[in-house]
Design a protein around this nucleic acid. Sequence first.
DNA 1: GTCCTGGAAATATAT
DNA 2: GAATATATTTCCAGG
Length: 786
Amino acid sequence: EHYSYASSGISSGLPLSTAHPALPAPCHDLQTSNPVISVLPSTGHPSGYGGTVDSGPAGYFLPSGGTRPNGAPALESPRIEITSYLGLHHGSNPFFHDVEVEDTVPGARRAPSTATLPLPGLEAYRDPTCLSPASSLSSRSCNSEASSYESNYSYPYASPQTSPWQSPCVSPKTTDPEDGFPRGLGACNLLASPRHSPSTSPRASVTEESWLGPRGSRPSSPCNKRKYGLNGRQPSCSPHPSPTPSPQGSPRVSVTDDTWLGNSTQYTSSAIVAAINALSTDSSLDLGDGVPVKARKTTLEHTAAMALKVEPASEDPGTTPPAATFSPEEFPAFQHIRKGAFCDQYLSVPQAPCPWVKPKPLSPASYMSPSLPALDWQLPPHSGPYELRIEVQPKSHHRAHYETEGSRGAVKASAGGHPIVQLHGYLENEPLTLQLFIGTADDRLLRPHAFYQVHRITGKTVSTTSHEAILSNTKVLEILLLPENNMRAIIDCAGILKLRNSDIELRKGETDIGRKNTRVRLVFRVHIPQPGGRTLSLQVASNPIECSQRSAQELPLVEKQSTDSYLVVGGKKMVLSGHNFLQDSKVIFVEKAPDGHHVWEMEAKTDREMCKPNSLVVEIPPFRNQRITSPVQVNFYVCNGKRKRSQYQHFTYLPANAVPIIKTEPTDDYEPAQTCGPMTQGLSPLSKPYYSQQLLLPPDPGACLVAGFTSCQQRSTVMSPPPSTSPKLHDLSSATYTKCSPSTGHSHLGLQQPAGGAPTTQEVPRSRAVPSSAPHPSSHATLQPQ
DNA sequence: GTCCTGGAAATATAT
DNA sequence: GAATATATTTCCAGG
């Protein structure tokens, strides 16, 4: 119900969970675990996955009729290459160049052999821990997250959507370490293979890079890292293995078919579930449409990678330690196999007393039960007496670092110092865990950002200790909120890591594109235990942060606007605060129809003399329709030239004779209006943590409508990209908007929905109107969601 | 020696 | 398909 709007936007024939990425499960109550999925038999029932979890993806992964020996449904897509590969390895040939051959033997399957394959020369493999001499430990860890984070080091707790992972039956952890070890090795070998499809993958195979000579100094893709480990620049056997698993699955090390085959008999069902979960979590239904061609061609890798998820997921949630750090030094027994992220992932979590196995002293993690909401769930910033608030917002710019770079430090606050987060209303003496992850900053529902990960910063300059964990593909930083500190934390331990677009876009199920998708938000969560064993989860997201060096230097950015609304007659001066304003900067007001088309555009007059790099004075232009009877929300942006435009800002035109008093929804949901009347509330995403607070999902499931409203609000206020230009981002269609509008009946709708919305009326007032057909960089349309 | 940073070259992708 | 414009990723140098 929370996401009812989505169904209309995608396909009436598909289940909600399939239709919308933000809907991990059909429906959920934050206070209750999802029984539907968690009760699925570990062996897995195709019908169960398809019908209960996600019929779309399920169908994709579960060919009809296909089953494995254990009764589990067969997964076909990825298997082919693996087989041959396995055979090669089985013959104790560890070198990657063999991979080139695997394609020639597509039908073979020798799964079982995988588990007992001898460990080949690990050095021959690209060591994910040796990404670059400059890579920090944390960065390196992300190198191959594909599976790493989903592996043994993942947190056991999961959202309803991941509940299947909890099934004890599918948990590899249940196996004896001795048993799991060899399997892990096999998987490692296979997984270590950077690519199994030389013919289709844009990335060079190991052979190419490692054995045929070094490539150019600037490999485009994923492959380049491997070269370090193989060309001598960096030892393949890193003495400093990544301390933390990488959250993002890197196609380069994704599990191969071999892997799958090798473990299929044991993990089939869980793998399927994991795959399904991955899809549902990731975002949109990926059946081919809307996915970049390049993403499809490596489908195999992705599918396999998802299978890998099973490993971690299968761990017993009740016994798995929350820690995500795995240090070979601390676990010498497995050091020798630490040649690739997957190795770690396939190893059974040792029973030995490892630091990361020990429960936290304060055990705030104890609240992280399987029923905790998934990271892409929209949660309210406050509920009852509690409120999670960002006291100090981060700077609008923070250049993220790549894995090949060293850390670029922690995110800072605009006024110096660092962001500060505080939980208000909590009077208990028990500390809580504050979770932090990097979320999206586009106009869709907040969700973990696929191209960025939080990066843990440590050192003498960091006062706040933190801990890394991996949750469903997302690295999460955990920080303690201590009563003695008034449940307040200085976030000086969080940096931002950029994952290569080529890596992420190739992940199966990933529908977002990385290009120009460089804005993120810091998302904070806290889980407050409630009487009766329930848990209250709150979440708040920061203002958007531009993470691209180039964008930060060139793109104009509006952080604040002195006015959020004004009468249709216009004429009032509005001061914009931000960055990269030029005297030649233009401010364009735009009204968009529900379908995203521009109904009206007008360039506002700017005061060049008053223009400063950080401020711009603009005169609000008169609205096209002077006779509106209800507020109309439009957008405006600052333009420094072709393709150098700021994000859309919200602005509301009020009826000429209107009294600027309009009922607003839960005003306490937003920060006090900074400028104008009530209308301003929640209308300026950049000046206020609007997005982070848009969806109110109080423990009481009754607030579903609010969610629907919010989503509509977002969409109605932002131009939707043409389907042809941005298939990935187009899932938020006008249809969706239309559908939700009537269902919400929210007073805000009036503000969001352009009056008349119909593009037919072209009543252009005195000022010169920019033709709707005016050249708009298609690229811009593509980036709308940003 | 490592971490941070700013800058920019090299490379990739889009127009 | 070439040329050009833009965006991304890697590398370098200095504090």
